[in-house]
Every structure is written in structure tokens, then in C-alpha cells.
């Protein structure tokens, strides 16, 4: 985590110039971005998706055109604050794309089945969710924190990540996600 402590005195204000430039170009933190849409970088082949030993096998369970994944954690405040919008996501997608097949799946990353149940009791998301107590999906899906939303598009037998959102998920983020998906129709 980047941490800057700048001396601010009357005769040293000029130090703020390089510091502010550094902050502007580095974002909030170097390894824990507050909010970021990362370019599509993830591609998963058919062998990964359908290999029963692969964690993807547990996620890509349908032949849907698009697979949307919401990653959250019971103990994460930003996830609690995003939960209502995760529910709206599940409701909005079939309306926005009535002629496409979507799979929406939630993952309680680091949560036991019990903890996932506690989360869903308070925030009924309305779609299937998996508990991932051992954080099995963290590395394969490059999850750096929660909440995270990923959208994959099926391309033949393979899957391509087309959208990634990290950080609190607001309604305008949902609209951005819908816009992004439309670009791939």
C-alpha cells in the first residue's frame, strides 16, 4: 500500500507539485485500487471450463451467452453496501437483454456455507451463489478484493472476460456494465 507523508510548511509548498502529480498518476493505492475497470485480459479455454478438476467448472455451469459473477464477502462493508445493487443486477439483466441467455452467479469468497447463508438471509440476491471458504476462485479469477463483478462472453467453446469492476458497486456501475455488454452483442 502506498503511503505518502508530505511535510507541509510555508516554505516547502513546492513539494506538493511532484507529490500531487504522483498521486494523480498512481491512483489511491498501488495494489488496492479504489475503483477500476480493468481491460479485458482474461481468456479461458474450453478445456479449463469443462475440466472437472478446474474451479471454472463449478462456475460456468450453463450454456449462457454471458456469465456474470459477483464476488462478495460477508465481513466486507463495501460488499454489504453493494448487495442491494447486486440484487438489482440480477433483475435488470434479463430485462435489458431479453433475447440473450445470461447466467448470474454470486460467490461468497472466503465465506463458509453458513456465512453465505447469513449474507443471503439479509441480502436475498435472487440468483445462485456459491461459498468459497478456501478462496479457491481468488487466483483463477484474479480477484484482488471484494466486491468484484466480472462478465464473461462465450465465444464458441471458450470464454472471454469483457468487463471487470472492483470496489463498491453502485447503480451507475450497473449501467456501465450494461453498456459494456451491449458493445459485445
Amino acid at each position: 500500500m502506498l503511503s505518502l507523508k508530505l511535510p507541509i510548511r510555508h516554505n516547502t509548498g513546492w513539494l506538493a507539485i511532484p507529490a500531487s502529480l504522483l498521486l494523480m498518476f498512481s491512483g489511491c493505492q498501488t495494489d488496492e485500487p479504489a475503483k477500476q475497470n480493468v481491460p479485458s485480459v482474461s481468456h479461458h479455454s474450453a478445456s479449463e471450463l469443462y475440466d472437472e478438476g478446474s474451479p471454472f467448472h463449478k462456475i460456468f455451469t450453463s450454456e449462457a451467452d454471458f456469465v456474470i459473477l459477483t464476488f462478495f464477502d460477508l465481513y466486507c462493508v463495501a460488499c454489504q453496501q453493494s448487495a442491494d445493487n447486486f440484487k438489482i443486477l440480477g433483475e435488470r439483466i434479463p430485462v435489458a437483454f431479453p433475447d440473450k441467455k445470461f447466467q448470474v452467479t454470486g460467490v461468497g469468497i472466503g465465506d463458509t456455507e453458513f456465512e453465505l447463508g447469513v449474507f443471503l438471509r439479509k441480502y436475498a440476491l435472487g440468483y445462485d451463489c456459491l461459498a468459497d471458504p478456501e478462496k479457491e476462485f481468488e487466483v483463477p479469477f484474479a480477484i484482488r478484493g471484494t466486491p468484484t463483478v466480472l462478465v464473461f462472453q462465450r465465444r464458441g467453446p471458450d470464454c472471454q472476460e469483457i468487463y471487470r469492476h472492483e470496489g463498491r458497486f453502485r447503480l451507475d456501475d450497473l449501467e456501465q456494465m450494461v453498456t459494456k455488454v451491449k458493445e459485445y452483442l
Binding site: 488496492e32 485500487p33 479504489a34 475503483k35 464477502d73 465481513y75 466486507c76 462493508v77 463495501a78 460488499c79 469468497i109 472466503g110 478462496k135 481468488e138 480477484i143 484482488r144 478484493g145 471484494t146 466486491p147 472492483e166 470496489g167 463498491r168
Partner: peptide
């Protein structure tokens, strides 16, 4: 406070 890291669920 917009993202919880995996190792520290509250940012």
C-alpha cells in the same frame, strides 16, 4: 472505503 482487500475485508 470502496473496496475490501482479500486479506483485509475492510479497506
Amino acid at each position: 472505503q470502496v473496496m475490501c482487500t482479500i486479506s483485509e475485508p475492510v479497506d
